[in-house]
Amino acid sequence: MNTKRAGLQHFLLRWSGVAAFLLLWEMGPRLGWVDGYFLPPFSTIVVEIFNLFADAYLSVHILVSVWRALVGLLIAVLIGIPFGILLGRVYPRTAEALSPILRILSQVNPFSLLPVFVLFFGIGETAKLAVVAWVSVWPVLFYTMTGTRTVDPVQEKSAASMGISPGELIMKVILPAALPTIFVGIRIGATITFYILIAAEMLGASAGLGFLVHNAAMNYQIPRIYAGATFIVIFGYLLNRALIFIGNLLFAWQENSSTTVTANATVTTPSWRPGRLSAVAAGIALLAIVLFGGIEVDKVNKEAASTDPGAHSRHFGTPVDSGSGN
């Protein structure tokens, strides 16, 4: 009971900052401390978010953005992990020689690449996916290299003592041992990606969360800008939390992650652990999102192109109201 109360107190304390900020946001415009036109009170924003949901457009934009982030990230993972293993373990001397180039390339600004990709691939999905993949491939690659290099030598030694083949050593020892580190790279890639993607969508897209905000701004729908931005913040926060949660779930086996039982302790039944079934389920879900998301994104793009060729400044599917707002 006591710990429960302490937990509640901690929870309240933790979120008191957010509460105070939101209160300030609500009161500021209402009491006339700031111009309510440029900064509408928070409650107006909440209503606007619900409006966006009710219009069913928000879900389309979410889907489009998530699909882009996911596919781009998948590309980055499919490139980054194999190359990370190759450079980290198989050809360490090559990796050493390549390190300055990799470092310089990883510093190439994604926004300065965007125009190149747009010229290269056109304004469609490929340019955005290329930017997303470019941004997230570096953390995945570097963390894979680091992770595969820092495997406990004692583990490798004991596997080697059983006469393990080099291929098996990578699949059964090095890869699993490096996976937590690789996952950190993927998580960093995912968060940076989401960030850059939203920005890229503002610079040129016909759907997606970034486009939503950009479009609202073009039409001077100020509450909608805030609503979109707030939603993106919450979404990004939840995404980050979810990835941390998944990481903890997957890598609960890490040494410092939980208490130990002693020989004379009662045998406890292990709590739920992700097994083969959940891995398959996750894989199928991922595939489904990529496939159906792709079909949906294609549909959205075609629709946008047919209703409004040339310009990309109109909100997908909304009634044309850009003329009235200013």
């Binding site: 406990d152 004692v154 583990q155 030694k157 020892v173 699993p176 041992a177 086996w253």
Partner: peptide
């Protein structure tokens, strides 16, 4: 072979 540092695979 049995080594000093246990050398168990923690993910197994």
């Amino acid at each position: 072979i049995v080594l000093q540092g246990y050398a168990l695979f923690p993910w197994r």
